[in-house]
Design a protein around this nucleic acid. Structure first.
Lengths: 169, 169
DNA sequence: CAGTATTAGTTGCATATTCAACTTTTACCC
DNA sequence: GGGTAAAAGTTGAATATGCAACTAATACTG
């Protein structure tokens, strides 16, 4: 890692203790904004890859990704994996089922749940979109050194874990 | 940085070249999803800090942040800084003005634009919310080493730059 | 095993968001 | 300068979203 620029922190130099004296937020180092802005920028641009040619919404695309990754899921697992509202997911799934992309079957083991899976048509759409999406991501990543990319994945994961811990507290 | 876990990359081991052979996306290392999920998780949880006690929407809060940071802006600059839709910002500003948080004056130099600024009341709200928001962020960051935090800021910035470059291409 | 609590998912409804079309003003250019 | 293009915001109308209340099923607990 070769970052040596000075960045003033929102949480103070000591990086420990509790109770914030400072009442001014510095956006240049305010994590929630930085991450959200970046996410929005990435999503918006990437979405052009698939919303134009296919009529997928971003939400549907994200669900498609989940189902392609795990092949069989319950809605609650998608909620867990994506941090999206369950009502949002419920409606998106209905729409995707109506379009024939998704199959839903009541789970034998628990009749409240339903087993979700991509249909053949769902897979077909996925296969058509995935390559250009991967290509776009590749371009994005080419802005980073290999080590930086690895570190980034590690850090994102670490923050996710942190979020979970904070939820419990 | 002490990340030594193996993470398979979506863009292939060589990390160079162009044209993707692979048609399967691995969510564990797919940057758009990882970043978006994290952003969503952070925003949602943090929002509880200010939506419950004040009736700010996330959009309004983000605008508040912008105005507190730059003290005088045009709407277009908020669009630029946040990647939000200009109509979204337009309506949020109207609402914020109606609530007395924001002042809008037509810009002398260009009558299409308007000079935006927080009112005293706007600042008051900001001062009431900022501490707990900073506190929450501090808790989040405490999950990282100091060097990791620095690296993260660096990487987020680098990706933003990369996005801009890609837009031009 | 009865009664209560939890969980999975859906839905009503109010609000928020998007896209495109529009107004007004400024910039460009011959 | 006159005419066209571009930019800053606004707005109508369709859609998406979030919250809370709801149904149905399972889990817990005495």
């Amino acid at each position: 890692m070769n970052s040596n620029q000075y960045i003033s922190s929102n949480s103070g130099a000591s990086h420990s203790g509790s109770g914030s004296q400072r009442t001014r937020i510095h956006l240049g180092s305010f994590l929630p904004s930085l991450i959200r802005n970046l996410a929005e920028g990435i999503s918006t641009r990437l979405a052009k890859t698939y919303t134009e040619e296919y009529q997928l919404t971003i939400t549907e695309w994200r669900i498609l990704l989940q189902l392609a990754e795990h092949q069989s899921l319950h809605a609650a697992q998608i909620v867990e994996n994506t941090s999206m509202e369950k009502s949002k997911i419920s409606r998106a799934l209905s729409s995707m089922e109506a379009d024939g992309m998704v199959r839903r079957e009541v789970d034998d083991e628990d009749n409240r749940r339903q087993r979700l899976a991509l249909s053949d048509y769902g897979w077909e759409i996925y296969r058509q979109i995935a390559p250009s999406v991967l290509d776009w991501e590749k371009q994005l990543i080419e802005g980073l050194e290999v080590a930086e990319y690895r570190d980034l994945l590690f850090l994102l994961e670490k923050l996710n874990e942190r979020l979970k811990v904070m939820d419990k507290a």
